[in-house]
């Protein structure tokens, strides 16, 4: 077993002719929150989507190099992207629960479709477990049959996190999960990240350096498709080694 949750080797990503990710060697340790930060268009989300092979849903995208999830190359021969995505859950910028499914079914659907539970009791238990993990159970336990439309933005986002957790992934990818959530909801999600990293590895994309500073253990600074600097969060924000990182965290670089 690898010491790292995610490792990339000479990773290059193209959209058509354009090289978006320009040769990245990255190592994400296990059980940490790893923040990828950088200005808009630097390739953060693209890189994130390479980790669970979501990228290939875009016909123009082409990946070179390796992405190792827990030591195994997900772009290797015969690897099924669906299996990768079971291990590597994802939460997006816009809270996207299934609007036509109840709160309960939003969490249960992945388990049902993948035949991961054997009985109704087991399903109930896993749904409760996932909602508890996402710090949402107490707020929704009396209305599991309601539709997600009745939830606030922050609650919706935590519902989506519960949906991802239900499949018991090893890694959780989050693409600006609080971009559309109010400050209180943001704080709850940030607290949640802190709890979740005991059991999961979280890679968080953020364009807000302050959020990276608050929640992450490690930070990778991405600029124009290159990984400029990776380090412990407290070091990156106290004394970045690279001038570009310094400029970015002090707000000179936009």
């Amino acid at each position: 077993m690898s010491d790292f949750a995610i490792e990339t080797k000479k990773l290059r990503i193209y959209y058509g002719e354009n090289e978006i990710i320009k040769g990245i060697d990255l190592k994400v340790p296990k059980n940490v929150v790893f923040a990828l930060m950088g200005p808009s268009g630097c390739g953060k989300s693209t890189l994130l989507r390479a980790f669970n092979r979501l990228l290939e849903l875009n016909k123009e995208a082409r990946v070179e190099g390796e992405v190792l999830i827990l030591g195994k190359n997900v772009y290797g021969n015969g690897v099924n992207p669906i299996d990768v995505r079971k291990q590597v859950g994802m939460v997006f910028q816009y809270p996207n629960p299934f609007p036509h499914l109840s709160i309960y079914d939003n969490v249960a659907i992945g388990l049902k479709l993948n035949h991961l539970v054997k009985s109704k009791e087991e399903l109930d238990e896993r749904v409760k477990w996932a909602l508890e993990k996402a710090f949402l159970w107490d707020e929704v336990k009396g209305r599991l049959d309601d539709y997600p439309a009745s939830l606030s933005g922050g609650q919706k986002q935590r519902l989506v996190i519960a949906r991802a957790l239900a499949l018991k992934p090893k890694i959780l990818l989050m693409d600006e999960p609080t971009a559309n959530v109010d400050p209180i909801g943001t704080r709850k999600i940030e607290e949640l990240l802190f709890e979740l990293k005991r059991e999961y590895t979280i890679v968080l994309v953020t364009h807000e350096p302050m959020q990276a500073a608050r929640v992450s253990d490690y930070v990778g600074f991405l600029y124009l498709g290159k990984l400029v600097e990776v380090g412990l969060t407290r070091e990156i924000f106290e004394k970045p080694k690279h001038e570009l990182t310094e400029k970015y965290v002090t707000g000179v670089l936009v």
Binding site: F237, E238, K239, E246, T250
Partner: peptide, 9 residues
């Protein structure tokens, strides 16, 4: 402003 890096130092 929540200053960072050299600004904070």
């Amino acid at each position: 402003y929540q200053p960072m890096a050299k600004d904070m130092r």
